[in-house]
């Protein structure tokens, strides 16, 4: 009984400590972002890594998401005889919810895991310490470019997803089911407002921050993670944890932002 309470207390302490370290990590990273020197080249390289190399996956995911959304909505709307609403339904669903969330999930899978593994290996291989010993700030050298790139690339990818998704809906709605092209787009123009776009953008910026923050921090703090263990296994386990944690955080944040902005 006593042991169980002690274990519970230990766990609480551990998770509070971990959360605190993650917060400090974010604060330190932001401290570097907000102060000079600013360097463009490493940031561009990271945007390329997170962004450009994800576009193909996003294009495929976006097209099929738009197609399936149009399919489902068409099936429902046709019963109520309001097929004219198809365009706005597809656009609102994708811009407000599916675009930001699914883009975030793709980026977690492609870039989040890679960021966590890369930084985790730098930690186990003493590369982070080596930077520190050379008086090169690891936050500035390793973390800052990735965080800025996440904040820039994820919103851009989300916009791309939205456009492709709407095109996917067009394929199913207009090309396949013969909804008139004019009503598909006019419905969109009539109902999608700046507020909806803003909500999608807000989400994507928050998701971009969450993804890179969690991935980078879990890798960077690898040596403080009791579940991770040691060496190569630690990197693998930390990466898995980071991916799971990112997905959960993105979904929770998605609900919170929706609730606040609707």
């Amino acid at each position: 009984m006593f042991a169980a309470v002690a274990r519970l207390g230990n766990n609480v302490f551990y998770y509070v400590e971990q959360t605190g370290m993650m917060m400090l990590f974010l604060l330190q990273a932001f401290g570097r972002i907000l102060t000079p020197p600013y360097r463009l080249a490493p940031i561009v390289r990271q945007i390329h890594f997170i962004g450009a190399r994800s576009t193909l996956v996003i294009a495929v995911a976006g097209t099929f998401t738009g197609m399936v959304v149009a399919l489902q909505f068409y099936d429902t709307l046709v019963r109520f005889g309001s097929v004219a609403l198809l365009g706005s339904a597809v656009a609102l669903g994708i811009i407000r919810e599916l675009g930001p969330v699914l883009t975030a999930l793709v980026v977690i899978g492609r870039a989040g895991s890679a960021i966590c593994a890369e930084i985790g290996i730098m930690r186990t291989d003493q590369q982070i310490e080596a930077l520190d010993c050379m008086a090169i700030d690891p936050f500035r050298f390793v973390i800052e470019p990735k965080l800025v790139a996440g904040l820039v690339a994820v919103p851009i990818l989300t916009c791309f997803f939205d456009v492709v998704g709407i095109f996917g809906g067009y394929l199913v709605g207009v090309v396949l089911f013969g909804v008139s092209e004019a009503s598909y787009f006019q419905g969109m123009i009539d109902t999608v407002g700046w507020h909806d776009v803003l909500m999608g953008l807000t989400k994507s910026v928050i998701f971009g921050l969450l993804i890179v923050w969690i991935a980078a921090a879990r890798g960077f703090l690898l040596h403080r993670d009791r579940a991770a263990g040691f060496g190569a296994e630690a990197v693998g386990r930390s990466t898995t944890n980071a991916v799971v944690l990112s997905i959960i955080c993105v979904l929770v944040a998605d609900y919170l932002v929706s609730a606040l902005m609707l």
Binding site: M122, Q126, E129, A130, D132, C133, D137
Partner: peptide, 23 residues
């Protein structure tokens, strides 16, 4: 502080066991 530490570290060299080169 980090600033003092970094000022000192510029005058040091550290060779790590496995090299710790950036891959």
């Amino acid at each position: 502080s980090r600033k003092t530490l970094y000022a000192i570290r510029r005058r040091l060299g550290v060779a790590f066991q496995g090299g710790a080169l950036f891959s």
